[in-house]
Design a protein around this nucleic acid. Structure first.
Lengths: 234, 234
DNA sequence: CGTCCCGTTGAGGCGGTTCAAAGTGCGTGG
DNA sequence: CCACGCACTTTGAACCGCCTCAACGGGACG
């Protein structure tokens, strides 16, 4: 695949493939729970690791929200993904992280030494397939995000994010209509490739149109799901 | 990780029929790949698989250029990635492909049955780790693409693509200054989230500024690498 | 020689950014 | 408990860049 950034090209050319997935879904929580390691508290805006750091640890989010991001040469921050409790960052087997990670809220994470990961994979080869599946899920999510960034209108981007958060709530058994925006407008803007003003304007436009309620800046109530969905591809 | 798209609704849309007769394929020797499976010829604009298809095969690109893409509800095509000879698509272990794949030029690919992949990985468990590494590399490339899409200016996007193609040439031992754009302006636009007019304008602006030469529409010669690099973060 | 597809070039409009300022919520300290 | 201060959000006005629409040019092919 064409790599847009210079990363001292890793060419693992011809290899072979995975096995049939055991069952639909979660590459989250329970898979990683047996993994050991101490729990670390990270304050809001605290970094877990930085772009280019040696990948000595993976991190399982226990609570709070963590984001992966890159700082561009001009100082801009681009958020690559949001990670919620149960998600694992940095488990892939490259020598260095290709991005930074920081907590968007106060968070707790489990530090999983890489040596332990490798040892476990050697002892239990089926774990590698499990991680491969996790990577496939993350790859899919990243592709979704990519398609979203290419969306034509700002409204479509913001609506997509709201719907994604709503789906996540539903998947967890929570109310899909009640969305808590734990991240700031700046975080959302850096995630969607928009300015904070535009994010704010879109949310308030949706509110004016009766698509959502906005009782607080951090609290969104979806009132017209179909309407939001229609905006997604506009 | 937050998934922006609903993985449950896969819309496989209409295929674009090849309008051109199959172009000649540069003949090369019988590439002996460790991966088994028959070699398939794919004409330009021919599809390998469609979004939502059962992932019954993986595909190793032998020659030509293949792209992964999605068709949005409004009919727009978004290209997720370019794949060159040696790259493998669809090796991840999800049940269905989450995207379509089509040849941008006449191409040859090796069809690798999934059953074979499963069998090989059972016989040689260490292969799963190699696939995990491949996934990590692809994930990194996708993140790079994502950051590129969030770039502020159209010029930055086009310059990023040119530099990526140049780096790929260098990695292969070819002349990094001579770039062949085997894909059309439409393909580039769908990859960068731009219109074909803007892509064309940016290329010709670079030419006017002396950054590149453009002897033919499909042939770019880099004249000022530093200049292009400066535009990248503008 | 005509057609089709692709690339280029121009004119105009719109959406998101930029710049600026006011409003809101919340924690801290008096 | 209230007042203050700070950070975040909201809102407004003007600008700029990319998209849209349109027309032209050029190679490939029948």
């Amino acid at each position: 695949m064409l790599a847009l950034m210079d990363q001292t090209d890793q060419f693992a050319t011809t290899v072979r493939a995975p096995r049939r997935p055991p069952a639909p879904v979660p590459a989250l929580g329970p898979a990683a729970s047996p993994l050991g390691g101490p729990v670390q508290f990270v304050p809001a805006r605290g970094d877990l690791f930085l772009d280019g750091d040696a990948a000595s640890h993976a991190f399982e989010v226990i609570d709070g929200i963590v984001c992966a991001y890159r700082i561009l040469p001009d100082g801009e921050r681009r958020i690559i993904g949001f990670y919620y409790p149960g998600d694992v960052l940095g488990y892939c087997c490259l020598e260095t992280h290709g991005y930074s990670a920081q907590a968007l809220t106060a968070a707790r994470v489990r530090r999983i030494p890489r040596a332990m990961l490798e040892r476990m994979i050697e002892e239990r080869p089926e774990l590698a397939q499990r991680f491969l599946r996790m990577a496939a899920v993350e790859l899919t999510a990243t592709r979704d995000h990519l398609v979203c960034l290419a969306a034509k209108s700002a409204g479509a981007k913001v609506a997509s994010l709201l719907l994604a958060l709503s789906r996540r709530n539903r998947a967890l058994g929570h109310d899909p209509a009640q969305i808590r925006l734990s991240m700031t407008r700046t975080d959302i803007g850096d995630y969607l490739g928009l300015t904070i003003e535009t994010v704010s304007r879109m949310l308030n436009r949706f509110k004016r149109q009766g698509l959502i309620d906005l009782p607080r800046a951090t609290h969104v109530v979806i009132r017209n799901l179909a309407g939001l969905h229609a905006i997604t591809d506009a």
